[in-house]
Design a protein around this nucleic acid. Sequence first.
DNA 1: GTGAAAGCGCTAACAT
DNA 2: ATGTTAGCGCTTTCAC
Lengths: 331, 331
Amino acid sequence: MSATIYDVAREAGVSMATVSRVVNGNPNVKPTTRKKVSEAIKRLGYRPNAVARGLASKKTTTVGVIIPDISSVFFSELARGIEDIATMYNYNIILCNSDQNKDKEVRLIQTLLGKQVDGLVFMGGKIAEDHIEEFTNSPVPVVLAATVDENEKIPSVNIDYEQAVYDVISHFIENGHRRIGFINGPLEIPINKHRLAGYKRALAAHDIPFEESLVSIGDYTYESGKEATVQFLAQEIKPTAIYVAADEMAIGAIHEIQDQGMKVPQDIEVVTSENTRLVQMVRPTLSSVAEPTYDIGAVAMRLLTKLMNSEKVETATVVLPHHIDYRQSTK
Amino acid sequence: MSATIYDVAREAGVSMATVSRVVNGNPNVKPTTRKKVSEAIKRLGYRPNAVARGLASKKTTTVGVIIPDISSVFFSELARGIEDIATMYNYNIILCNSDQNKDKEVRLIQTLLGKQVDGLVFMGGKIAEDHIEEFTNSPVPVVLAATVDENEKIPSVNIDYEQAVYDVISHFIENGHRRIGFINGPLEIPINKHRLAGYKRALAAHDIPFEESLVSIGDYTYESGKEATVQFLAQEIKPTAIYVAADEMAIGAIHEIQDQGMKVPQDIEVVTSENTRLVQMVRPTLSSVAEPTYDIGAVAMRLLTKLMNSEKVETATVVLPHHIDYRQSTK
DNA sequence: GTGAAAGCGCTAACAT
DNA sequence: ATGTTAGCGCTTTCAC
């Protein structure tokens, strides 16, 4: 059994209250007693029990993080942003994979609240009624990261997905493209709805009719990017540019184009969305909407610290700036 | 304030012990009272406080996971393996990035033990004396994942890194290669020492002299892979095959080879080590030592559950089988 | 500046 | 089958 605060108190010849003060850096302790206590702590190898502290203080300095899949390049970069800021503010994170499964998500929220986390960062796809209910009933603050709640009820950090796609497509059109393919993710997810809206708005702004056959829905995997591209390339008049909603799908698209003997960007230009490290690891390197992945995580965690600290926040719905990094997959 | 076990007891007209029994699935409860209690729980929206439970029971059903960098593809796959098995056995994980910084690692271990985790999974580079001391003093079990302790004092899960490299190099030699480049990671890390040993052993077994100039040390990044390759290709007699210790470096190597107008595998064959999803996302696809990344994490966590449960384990130093997946980067 | 004492919400003997 | 009673190790008033 390791030493408790009581053991230290006895060893130092003071009360546990005083030990507690020393441990917590309370200034109301005479330097000499502080020294006595510190020495006793060292001698006994005392390490405060955070669980007991959590029970007494009702703070665990731990936040829950629910993420679709930590092994995804995109989400793991987000997670790194979250963890770095958490560390900076002295929090630890309990990390849970949800696979975007609603039941699992709800269960995880409850487990984490049961563990008395001081706050929650949630990443997911669609925010349903069930989520909203859990979040609003939560005794601790919740922040969404790279996840949009259409009602804007929950604090969140995102970019303007619609505008980002609008920018890309407009750029394509201004460079003479008329048939522009779009490999999107599932439409249940609001982010993808916004992307589609941006795509349509850009076409409309340039008087180009929308064509259903130029839009394909993938599941973010390399394979689904390839498959979508197979469809596009099977058309009599192939697209000359493709916008893709996820990096792995974009790499799939590029490879399919190349496998069919065409060249990127000469025959078809490609722009992707996530700007993960992957974009540098393909040939040609991928032009991408530069969604600040790490920053979204970092800002979300920072926002959460403010909320946990009951600080006033101007806007709880943060929209981070984006830009577009043009690399070799565009002319 | 949310309801406590005491509130539920009053609401159901029983004692808190009974409520506790119901909550914990203790069979010694009459079905009718169980029902009464369950209803009271539902009515009050009672959710057990895991912190209080942890203090009373001395179990938190939480394990600490120390990882160099969650945003690395390799480690995030490992982490996923760990988390999946943790979930399966009803544990949550507190995830901490160490950046392989020894001081940070030691601090994290102490923080996690302070939070009373029931066990620890550690991933890192070199295991120093300081680590060993923390681990042996730890009141809870520790398992190393994809991390070797040269003294084999701490339970661990790995593959036979030396043999893996030996296999690759032998295969190269048997296919006629004589000059084989080797892009390794830092030698302080035992895994890389083993890799180097395998490289040397294979050469020796085939009477090929070892040449210092064919071995380069990278830092696992794409860029360092490119740079090492620049060195190799600057030699009068270039290597005709290269073995690389990490996927991102291998992609850098391939791109450098291609950028210099040579072809993989025609001019130079390349084999890498981690077999992450990246190997499928390059052209040519990368042949790789198939280190079962996810499984290492999963097995490490499984081993930890046994240790936490004080079950007997045959071998605490687990060596998982590996094989080699030959893809397009080899003939 | 320091100590005493009452919880925090639960589990785990021990009774009954 | 159920209730009683101590803690678990700490924080936090409230006195002094």
